[in-house]
Computed example of a mutant assay.
Amino acid sequence: MRRIDLNIIRVGVGDPADPIIQRALATTNDIFAQVNISLGQVKRFDVPAHHIAGMNVIRDKNEAFELTKKWTAPGRAIDVFVVSATADWMLGASPIGGTCQKYGCVFVSGVVMQLSEPSTGNVLAHEIGHYLGLDDDEYDKSNLMHYTVPNGKKLTQSQGRRMNTHCFLH
């Protein structure tokens, strides 16, 4: 089984080991297990809002981009920025096929999401799926990559093969 490491970065919103995040990580691990991917090392960081100039509330994808440009965590891991709120239409944002060159990156170099129970686990897995190269699925509501919430937890073997080509998997 291949692994993906994560940096959970709470932006001005408290404890990075909070129970909602713990449940989201467990859900994500369960979802990815069906395509032989597991979560590896998960590091936690807490960035006070005064270091990010109020970017704990993300109103659009440009602000998400700016957040990932201003701060990154060390190591070969996907940076997952957890903010207190995003725009009403957006629970998360991630590039499709995210970079492995986080430092000095000129585009989005991480996942940005808000905590939104009960769907936080699916949102986390969905956005990591984007980062690992998956597009939205417009047709299958049972698929994790369906673009609406609630979506399902299913991943196909072809989606697993696609994610397994990403440079952050080991």
Rank of each mutant, 00 (worst) to 15 (best):
I4K: 02
D5N: 15
L6T: 07
R10W: 09
R10T: 11
V11K: 10
G12V: 07
I20V: 14
Q22V: 15
R23V: 15
A24R: 04
D30F: 05
D30R: 10
Q34A: 15
N36D: 15
R44Q: 09
V47P: 00
H50D: 12
V57K: 06
V57E: 01
I58M: 01
K61T: 12
K61L: 09
N62I: 02
E66G: 14
T68W: 01
W71G: 02
A73D: 02
G75N: 06
R76Y: 12
A77Q: 06
D79I: 01
D79Y: 05
S84M: 09
A85P: 05
T86C: 11
W89L: 04
M90N: 00
M90L: 14
L91E: 03
G92P: 08
I96C: 04
I96Q: 01
I96F: 00
V106Y: 07
S109C: 14
V111K: 00
P118N: 12
P118L: 14
T120Y: 08
T120S: 14
T120F: 07
N122Y: 08
L124S: 10
G129A: 04
Y131F: 13
D135N: 11
D137H: 07
L144P: 02
L144K: 10
G152Q: 09
K154M: 08
K154S: 05
S158A: 13
N164K: 05
N164Y: 02
T165Y: 06
H166A: 04
H166C: 04
C167L: 15
C167I: 14
H170K: 14
